[in-house]
Nucleic acid binder design. Structure first.
Length: 421
RNA sequence: GGAGAGGUGGCCGAGCCGGUCGAAGGCAGCCGCCUGCUAAGCGGUUGUGGGGGUAACACCUCACCCAGGGUUCGAAUCCCUGCCUCUCCGCCA
């Protein structure tokens, strides 16, 4: 969320930013709405002030057993008027609030302007895509042959976009989770295992709601939302808190299952493990001081890259252009891993700086030593990494002619085997 | 699931037969005094958000005693709803 004051004072700047984002929110009505809101607010407050003063006077008169009837009836009118104004004000507040909640974040100045994913820019590449002297298979073919992923039964017991991991497949999933958590915690991230169902406030805090309701799974009675990423519960850990300066930066890492409706993605990645309603992910989340957040973004991205390097998986890093960035982000790097089965790079991590966008929504502040007042922290997060897609990358990159999979060196300890066969 | 108790400032804890309560007292923190140093002691001070105001402070004002409604001239205090915590019983991994 952006600051109401900022919006009304920088309307032109903002309209340009929204255009770059290919976002169609119409900001033109906002200044007039704000003017009206502030006018009513002032009137309401003045009346309240009057009521406070006179009510005190009434109390004094009554204690002295004097007549206060005329004042009482006058204040009755004042209270009615306040109620009336507040009613109107409440309507405007709701509209303003909803309006602000639906405006995406402002892109950072370093973000390339572009309309969609075709205008993202490659920043760097690591590793050479391996060449095979046999036809490289898709991970679903590899996995089904090895009997380590069962898509059919996944569909039977749950539905499309669900799958069952089995034997070494299940073990590989677990190995990756442990490997990533170990690596991240060694780098100073504190491990968190949060609730997987959260309330509406948490979803609003990180920006999923109110705009993206259709992408979330929800329980009915009582109402909870299933997390689409650990970003939600972990960032909301400090919702409505004021942190001390010396607590920052805070680094968290969390393994969680993630649940996504994938509404509107019909026909996309229908086969295999790439796009599932339920998948596992290890996430990294940071709370930092504003002046450090872009350095922290670079470090965060490097941490995610390190995992791929240790696994020996070729990848590239791209910076998303203004038109392709997520709603809450000010700047995002995507890391794409090489998939021989598809002969292309596919997203495996997304690292973003949200600046104070989420912090303002979730009311996460900090207090500087010796300074008055509070400031919003900056929040960041990145996958480190999406486990399902990492597993896909391993199957496809480490496949061997005989259909077996060489286990990457770094995982052997966790797998207790060198080859999946 | 049944029966009770409760949610007050950074923490503990009064107030809760409505007005003098942004809220006693204690602790912690900060500033100063005292002191050879530390401790003790003394005095002062310390919340958040909005609006206005200032070059910046100061300052003025509104709101906030879990949340949302209601009663009232006036609510931390009374009423209703929700959420959360705790105790006992039952059930369960």
């Amino acid at each position: 969320m952006l600051d109401a004051r900022f919006v009304r004072e920088n309307i032109a700047l903002l309209m340009k930013a929204m255009e770059n984002r290919a976002c169609d929110v119409d900001l033109s009505a906002f200044p007039a709405m704000e003017e009206e809101r502030l006018k009513l607010l002032k009137e309401s407050e003045e009346l309240r002030n009057k009521r406070n003063v006179v009510s005190e006077e009434i109390g004094r008169l009554k204690r002295q057993k004097q007549d206060a009837e005329s004042l009482v009836s006058e204040m009755k009118g004042v209270s009615d008027r306040i109620k009336e104004i507040d009613e109107t004000l409440k309507g405007i507040d709701e509209r303003t609030g909803l309006f602000l909640l639906n405006i995406p974040n402002m892109p950072h100045e370093s973000v390339p302007v572009g309309k969609d994913e075709t205008e993202n820019i490659e920043i760097r590449k690591w590793g050479e895509p391996r060449t095979f002297d046999f036809p490289a298979l898709n991970h679903w073919d590899i996995a089904e042959t090895l009997g380590i992923i069962d898509f059919e039964r996944g569909a039977k017991i749950a539905g499309a976009r669900f799958s069952v991991m089995k034997g070494p497949g299940a073990r590989l999933e677990r190995a990756l989770m442990n490997f990533m958590l170990h690596l991240n915690t060694e780098k100073g991230y504190t491990e968190i295992f949060p609730p997987l169902l959260v309330n509406r406030e948490s979803m609003t805090g990180t920006g999923q709601l109110p705009k993206f309701e259709a992408e979330l799974f929800r329980t009915v009675d009582p109402e909870f939302y299933l997390i689409p990423t650990a970003e939600v519960p972990v960032t909301n850990l400090h919702r409505d808190e004021i942190l001390r300066e010396d607590q920052l930066p805070i680094y968290y890492t969390a393994y969680t299952p993630c649940f996504r409706r994938e509404a509107g993605s019909y026909g996309k990645d229908v086969r295999g493990l790439i796009r599932q309603h339920q998948f596992n992910k290890v996430e990294m989340v940071k709370f930092v001081k504003p002046e450090n957040s872009y350095d922290e973004l670079e470090k965060l991205t490097a941490n995610a890259e390190d995992i791929l390097q240790k696994l020996g998986l070729p990848y590239r890093v791209i910076v998303l252009c203004t038109g392709d960035m997520g709603f809450s982000s000010a700047k995002t790097y995507d890391i794409e891993v090489w998939l021989p089965g598809q002969n292309k790079y596919r997203e495996i991590s997304s690292c973003s700086n949200f600046e104070d966008f989420q912090a303002r929504r979730a009311n996460i502040r900090f207090k500087r030593e010796g300074k008055k007042g509070t400031e919003f922290v900056h929040t960041l997060n990145g996958s480190g990494l999406a486990i399902g897609r990492t597993l896909v990358a391993i199957l496809e990159n480490y496949q061997q002619q005989d259909g077996t999979i060489a286990v990457p060196e770094a995982l052997r300890h966790y797998m207790g085997m060198d080859v999946i066969k």
